[in-house]
Design a protein around this nucleic acid. Structure first.
Lengths: 344, 344
DNA sequence: TTGTACGCGTTATCAT
DNA sequence: ATGATAACGCGTACAA
């Protein structure tokens, strides 16, 4: 009662008493197959537990039914969420996901990616930030008419090739939150200016505050490196001056954690003496003490949309088209922000 | 000066003036090819930038050059590290990695995995804990003579099919650490007893303490669920009694973080009044305040060894055999543990 | 509506 | 040592 050899399209054809061409038609949903024939074939397919072989199929029509995921991101949680989002669509549509972490600072990273693509035969690639910000990689792919979708924080490609996390606009929410709590002496630890996400967040934050008649002085904006240690460094500068800000927004939770550490060492109480917010809703954002007010990207939703777009780019005719392009992160309020009591 | 169409074995054969069979021989390193012929072919291969097509190759010899990674683990960092470890070997040996997160509690999870394997055509699978502890899945694979390697914390399979993280022995280190700091009233928050890793750690810890003439009373061992919230719950029981332990070992960092939260709320100072240790060296173990003394698995090394074993299982003759099977986690000392001053 | 014949790029079986 | 030819499993002109 065991199925030893997996059945092929030929077996199905033979048992059903038709040609394999007809079976092929049924598999691919061709309309030109008689009702009764189709049903018979379908039942045989079930009976034989037949699954079309991806490799043979790919060989014949030059597709692998493999999607590539290219990234270079230290945030493992983010990667994991993206993978799950992608896979929920992949599984549903008969694709598999092949991962390719890379090092986008390295000089040969474009070749490394191109290499990955050609040797793995993936039908298309999903590119995560910050790699997605690479213009060189994107144009290399575009030039080769190779299907790709980027996930990024700014509008840097055709809407068919990108899903945008609108972080600039999301800054409105955190700005509003802090201002409504009475803060006006606000500082920001920005991210590396080479990242477009950093620029979006910085400008978005600063603009949003300006709209509310608050201007951040030059010396209250310090660029960090998105790391915990870097957050500590900047926090030290920000919190040891003669006057310290009443609120700090950090470009990510990692650096915010650094601020918490330094504040703790300096005896500055959060949120009583200092409000603090981050970005990401990293895994420890809710664990850390105080728990962190932060902005969260709907990562899974974003990657689902991106995957749909990619598969659509691969099969322009078959797949229902995905229209969404811009998705906004949202505010999560926790312990680290509170109303500003003292004011100069 | 651009290569439009990727070249095939036929192109190489034609240009080199030989039959494609000979080219195939060169590709696969067959010894029976003349020196000059081989060199000529090799130069043509380079010139044409020829790369054998994985799909065609797979169709012909029933291999996909794809490896599957099966897991169901909430620790994204762990997954990420494993993926990188695997890939460092995969790339080197011409394999790609296909990911498959699953839900091992669900009743049809074995079928789900089997399904994944057959539809993706992966040549073999790497199974991560806790899925790796599933006897049903492992025997299903073994029965089908399907190459697999498990990563687990106990010796539950042939050494060809497993890489063991010896957590039982690693407990010696943390026990020794705590005892040497003067602790004797020690509590443990164990993990779900269904997990073999939980049992290993519990028994290992308790045995190691016994060797040092310390016995943990029944009421000092409470089972948690490995989650932050669960850690808080158990911590509440442990820290609100008439006498509280001077040290707690938590089955993972996640729960240890819960303990920190509760201790903070109760005004219990760590490590002054309470020493605390976890397991995993989770991403926030070094970020949290106080930073956490913990046990770290050499995840990347483990996954590298496992991948080598898997590829060897797939190609019994070609690959150099991997002998390592047991790898021990190691202690990382941080702020959360200190010497015990007060003693009853 | 259905079937025949061939191609996809590679490896394997035989021969020479 | 090398080559002709048949697989591998499926898709697709083209024909019927």
């Amino acid at each position: 009662m065991e199925i030893k050899t997996k059945s092929t399209i030929n077996d199905v054809a033979r048992v059903a008493g038709v040609s394999k061409r007809t079976v092929s038609r049924v598999i691919n949903g061709s309309p030109s197959v008689g009702q009764i024939t189709r049903e018979r074939i379908n039942s045989v397919i079930k009976e034989l537990n037949f699954k079309p072989d991806k490799q043979a199929r790919g060989l014949a029509n030059k597709k692998s039914y493999l999607l590539g995921l290219i990234y270079d991101n230290p945030d493992a949680l983010y990667i994991d969420q993206v993978q799950r989002g992608c896979l929920s669509i992949c599984t549903q549509l008969g694709y598999e996901l092949v991962v390719h972490p890379c090092q986008w600072q390295k000089e040969d990273f474009v070749n490394d990616c191109l290499n990955f693509i050609s040797r793995s035969n993936v039908d298309g690639v999903l590119i995560l930030p910050p790699v997605s910000e690479s213009k060189i990689l994107a144009s290399a792919l575009r030039e080769r008419h190779y299907p790709y979708v980027r996930i990024a924080s700014a509008d840097l490609d055709d809407h068919a090739n990108i899903v945008i996390s609108n972080e600039r606009e999301a800054m409105e929410d955190i700005a509003e939150h802090l201002v409504s709590l009475g803060h006006s002496d606000i500082a920001m630890i920005s991210g590396p200016s080479q990242f477009c996400s950093s620029r979006e967040r910085l400008e978005g934050f600063s603009d949003s505050l300006k709209k509310r008649n608050i201007t951040i002085p030059e010396n209250r904006i310090i660029e960090g490196k998105n790391s915990y240690e870097s957050g500590m460094e900047v926090a030290n500068k920000l919190l040891t001056g003669t006057t310290i800000p009443t609120a700090i927004f950090a470009n990510n939770d990692e650096m915010a954690a650094g601020v918490i550490r330094v504040a703790s060492d300096l005896g500055i109480k959060i949120p009583e003496q200092l409000s603090l917010a981050g970005f990401d809703d990293n895994i420890f954002a809710s664990r850390i003490i105080p728990s962190l007010t932060t902005l969260r990207r709907p990562v899974e939703e974003i990657s689902i949309v991106a995957t749909r777009k990619l598969i659509q780019a691969i099969n322009p005719q078959n797949t229902p088209l995905e229209q969404t392009t811009v998705i906004k992160p949202y505010l999560i309020t926790r312990e680290s922000t509170a109303s500003c009591i003292t004011k100069s």
